[in-house]
């Protein structure tokens, strides 16, 4: 086993996701601590042009697996590509992001490599030359610290927790790999895009969420306008999703999405434990709630006790002033 770290860089339609840079940065840091190199593997079709961007964000070597059969994501195909990259660089650890793709690919690759994966990790450290990770368990009611006994530790990290490195002019060698005999049985036939081009919830640096305090879907322009002024993604509590005001894709919490943005703004959300499970790892939390005793205030960095219908329009105005 080597001392380097291999990261999987996610791309869709030939565009690298922000998490690709986050895992690149983490791989570089860990490789430095372990005394090896950070290699980043990118998989797809027509993606060899992406190597330069990865190098500019800290990859010391880039592996490109570029084949027409891999144009669309498939767990089977991409896991085979990761296996090929592992065989090529013999890393001390493999890192990917816990996105929809990463959550599907990670376990497939781990089983294929017959090793263990720690998923949705929020902290990684090197202790006595070995990797140690921390991850929330029991919907955030506890944090587990884990160490690997497996020969090849695999880690998937929660998006937005690890900072993406600044872009530099650095360059790195590229290696091309081809996987022979791909067997792909589960095939992506189509991707239906959600309407509009709003920022994706789990990848956003700012999230604005609304709850039952907003009284009805007709008032959602408050969330939308504030989100737009901040370049933020929109979230919702389960109460409003269950009421049919918002789609389930926007739900934050135990049975929705877990988000860790730098700024989370909760409007008219009481702060039930199941909602907190999805957002307490956010950097700064703002609560706008007219009830001074609402539990959301206990986790909020800054609170305004007041009527959302008065506070939010003013907030939009102040932010737009710049």
């Amino acid at each position: 086993m080597g001392t380097g770290v291999l990261a999987f860089a996610e791309q869709r339609n030939g565009e690298l996701k922000k998490t690709a840079f986050e895992v690149t940065g983490l791989a570089r840091r860990l490789a430095g601590e372990l005394g090896g190199e950070a290699t980043v593997v990118v998989v797809g079709s027509g993606v060899d042009g992406l190597a330069g961007e990865l190098a500019a964000h800290g990859a010391q070597k880039v592996i490109v697996v570029d084949q027409p059969e891999l144009a669309e994501y498939s767990a089977e195909g991409y896991a085979a590509a990761i296996e090929a990259a592992v065989k090529s660089v013999d890393p001390a650890a493999v890192i990917l992001a816990a996105t929809a793709m990463g959550k599907d690919l990670g376990p497939r690759a781990a089983a294929r490599l017959n090793t263990s994966l720690a998923s949705e990790v929020t902290e990684v450290s090197v202790e006595g030359g070995a990797l140690q990770v921390r991850r929330p368990v029991y919907s955030g009611k506890a944090i587990a610290t884990l160490k690997f006994n497996a020969a090849l530790p695999m880690i998937s990290v929660r998006p937005t927790i690890f900072a993406a490195p600044e872009r530099s002019e650095a360059d790195a060698p590229t290696e091309k790999l081809t996987v022979a005999d791909l067997t792909i049985r589960a095939v992506v036939e189509e991707i239906q895009k959600a309407q509009g081009d709003q920022v994706e919830l789990t990848e956003a640096t700012i999230v604005v969420s609304g709850g039952r305090g907003l009284k009805g879907p007709e008032n959602w322009h408050l969330v939308e306008d504030l989100a737009e002024a901040l370049g933020a993604a929109r979230g919702a509590s389960r109460a409003v999703v269950d009421a049919g005001w918002r789609p389930h894709a926007e739900q934050v919490g135990q049975t929705g999405k877990v988000v860790s943005p730098q700024l989370y703004i909760a409007i008219g959300i009481s702060g039930a434990i199941q909602h907190l499970a999805g957002m307490t790892s956010s950097g700064t939390i703002v609560a706008i709630n007219r009830d001074a005793d609402a539990p959301i205030h206990k986790v909020a960095t800054y609170s305004i006790v007041g009527d959302a219908f008065e506070v939010v329009p003013r907030l939009i105005e102040e932010i737009k002033k710049g």
């Binding site: 090793t115 368990v137 587990a144 610290t145 884990l146 006994n149 609560a287 206990k298 305004i304």
Partner: peptide
């Protein structure tokens, strides 16, 4: 392959501030 070293309560978020 993956062993629990410890289980801890989540870090308490610092008591927030009512801005107004």
């Amino acid at each position: 392959g993956l062993e629990i070293v410890s289980l801890d309560p989540p870090p308490e978020r610092q008591a927030g501030r009512i801005v107004g």
